[in-house]
Amino acid sequence: MTKILNFLFKIYFWIVILFLLLPLVIVIPISFVNSKYLQFPPTDFSLRWYVNYLDDPHFLTSTLNSLYLGFSSSIIATIIGTMAAIGLSKTNFFGKKFLMGLLLSPLIFPVIILGLGLYIFLSSFNLIENFYALIIAHAALIMPFSLIIVSTSLINFDTTLERAARVLGASPFKAFWFVTLPYIKPAVISSAIFSFFISFDELVIALFISGKIWTLPQRIWQDLRYEIDPTIAAVGSVLIIITFAGILFGTLIQKKQEKY
């Protein structure tokens, strides 16, 4: 009886996995088609849509924009999120849980509401279509991820380690630099990687506030609306591969921390 159940669960497991992954994976063969249309299964193979992607100045600019946006916002978010995590782990005060909830709220609120709010807020300062405003907005969106990842790694941090460093002659800053920071480093790096990809893939906020500064998801979105051409599949494939590699790398770094 249990054997049959086990077997059924296995089938169920693979169906769910296929359901989740197939739409992603299907993009990759489509990107290699030779025809002018999105075609599945492909009959003829070529790399022409990749060439097209690299030749298209619109796509290239928007890719660079997204990279720049992702790097900047993830660095800002990681620094702020890490500092917040350390501060919150060291203190206990009335309303700490409330503050934590407030800081995590961008995770919980629908992004579209956040986008609308940002739109109204930024337009009153005339900051729509401002790249720096977009960076700050993305940093605010992804900061909670850093906060959560670093906070989690700090839960297991033994604060007597910092005390030990102090009594052995380290100033508070040196104790942090030589003891606490190396301990949370894997979490900080992986949170930077994760938040980079969240920003890199983000569409809704960019649609609201970036105006004519095109990010890559925006460009894909735009192209999908007006012309359906396999270049998008090529772009999508590149995105999938890069994201997959990045997330894998981030996860491996996080695993490293469990060693201690």
Binding site: T160, L161, A164
Partner: peptide
């Protein structure tokens, strides 16, 4: 310290 507190 009781739990050694070596830097891991």
């Amino acid at each position: 310290f009781q739990n050694y507190s070596l830097f891991p």
